[in-house]
Design a protein around this nucleic acid. Structure first.
Length: 428
RNA sequence: GCCGUCGUGGCUCAGCCCGGUAGAGCGGCUGGCUGUUAACCAGUCGGUCAAAGGUCCGAAUCCUUUCGACGGCGCCA
């Protein structure tokens, strides 16, 4: 009796064989002479039949409730009547853990399944989304590593703000006040002086009271940083990363996309180079519909959406006004009002990544800090990077959950992470 | 922070506009039946209508406040 994963049966590799599956009861339909059990494991679901004639198995199957765990032995046959096309005729059923009445049933609201997240993660939908998520993380690492980047581990506890400071979560660290990081960028900047090309996939925390389908207070941030590079290198890297991840997902996640009803062709169509427009061009385009918009205004979500619908695929907007960008953004020497920064946008979600060239000149950096009301003395270690062998360098950060929300066309970013944290939700 | 929508058995909802003894489906339980596809049929259990206050002879329904959830803006990835 071979122990198999349900996927092996569904792939047609177990026909006319006696197998053993371990899993949980997904559905149960009970009759006088026949019980249908649909069993799930991490790899899929399979229908099993229990006949009254096999008395021991019948007695056990009668006791089973939805989500009870069990081991089931039986003979695999292809069967057109079974969902999935294969079926196990059960010979033995052994209950491992008999479940109480499962609270999640056919009728459920978003609110309810979010309160029941610890149980809802067993659903087909969450199972499939989490598999795609795992693959996207893997393919991201694959691309960085192929390009010679070293994965590094930045800290989550930090002692000073990375950008403004208003959106940082503060916390008590013994007797001191610390913060949770909102980006690992500054720490990656430290590491490039040792490792040159570095990246991380790490949590970032934002205390923004945003109430939208694309915001989390804790999200996973794909960040890269490297020296001796230009804006063109940066955009080429980012579009290369997107193309690689989309291609690999399109190759290996077909079953997941099909069952989720997501359009995998959208990913196959992601090819570098991506369209690039400057911020000034974006303003010109948007002015047609929104005459109130002027150079210097930040692009709102609605504006990004209008642009994104025009392109219908990922694209870049670059050369933003310095005034709306962070202190570390490098500016053009002949146009200090313009920063060497770039955002990647996708339809429906808007920004999924932000990056740019960092200011490598110490005096320029101090001026930018002062202009934004930041105290240079709070950033001594950051200024040291410009004192000891400064180099031109670039970097970017991409929101993993925003990427997934776009890829899978999820209704809400909360479904792109197993345990979403938002302004109002942090349970379980 | 501002704005909007919602809150009725375990779950999903109707009832609210126009006040007059709280309804259905699912789930549970009991029984029946069926190669079923989140089956079907019959019966049954189950609700201080989010909370507090007000108006009224009478409030799930009208008014006020609070709480919670969701979404939009701003901000961001």
């Amino acid at each position: 009796m071979a122990l198999v994963k349900i996927r092996e049966i569904l792939d047609g590799n177990c026909n006319d064989k006696s197998v053993s599956v371990r899993g949980w009861v997904y559905r149960k339909r009970e009759g006088k002479e026949l019980i249908f059990l649909v069993i799930r494991d991490s790899t899929g679901v399979i229908q099993c039949t229990v006949k009254k004639a096999s008395e021991a198995a019948w007695a056990e199957a009668q006791k089973l409730t939805i989500e009870s765990s069990l081991v089931l032995d039986g003979l695999v046959k292809p069967d057109k009547r079974a969902p999935g096309g294969f079926e196990i005729a059960a010979e033995a059923v052994s209950i491992i853990g008999l479940a109480d009445v499962f609270p999640i049933a056919k009728d459920k609201s978003e609110e309810f399944i979010r309160d029941m997240r610890h149980l809802w993660l067993r659903s087909r939908k969450m199972n499939l989304v989490m598999k795609v998520r795992g693959n996207v993380m893997e393919y991201t690492r694959e691309y960085f590593k192929k390009q010679g980047y070293t994965e590094v581990s930045p800290p989550m506890f930090i002692s000073a703000a990375v950008e403004g400071g208003s959106t940082l979560f503060g916390l008590k660290y013994f007797d001191q006040d610390l913060y949770l990081t909102q980006s690992s960028q500054l720490y990656l900047e430290i590491l490039i002086y040792s490792l040159e090309q570095v990246f991380c996939i790490a949590p970032s925390f934002r205390a923004e009271k945003s109430r939208t389908i694309r915001h989390l207070t804790e999200y996973w941030h794909i960040e890269g940083e490297w020296p001796f590079a230009t804006m063109d290198d940066l955009m080429k890297f980012e579009e290369g990363l997107m193309e690689h991840v989309c291609k690999r997902v399109a190759e290996n996640c077909q079953k997941e996309f099909a069952e989720l009803g997501a359009d995998i062709n959208k990913l196959a169509a992601v090819k570098a180079p991506f369209p690039r427009i400057t911020y000034a061009e974006a303003i010109d385009r948007l002015k047609v519909k929104n005459p109130a918009l002027n150079w210097g205004d930040d692009l709102g979500y609605e504006d990004e959406k209008v642009l994104a619908e025009d392109f219908g695929k990922p694209f870049f907007v670059y050369d933003y006004p310095t005034a709306i960008k962070a202190f570390y953004c490098k500016t053009y020497s002949d146009r200090p009002e313009v920063a060497l920064s770039v955002d990647m946008m996708v339809p429906r979600i808007g920004e999924i990544s932000t990056g740019g060239q960092r200011e490598e000149d110490k005096e320029m950096l101090i001026k930018r800090m002062q202009a934004q009301g930041l105290k240079p003395e709070d950033y001594e270690w950051y200024l040291d990077l410009r004192r000891y062998g400064t180099v031109p360098h670039v970097g970017f950060g991409m929101g993993l959950e925003r990427l997934l929300t776009w890829m899978l066309d999820l209704e809400n970013i909360m479904d792109a992470i197993p345990f979403p944290r938002t302004t109002r939700r942090f349970y379980p």
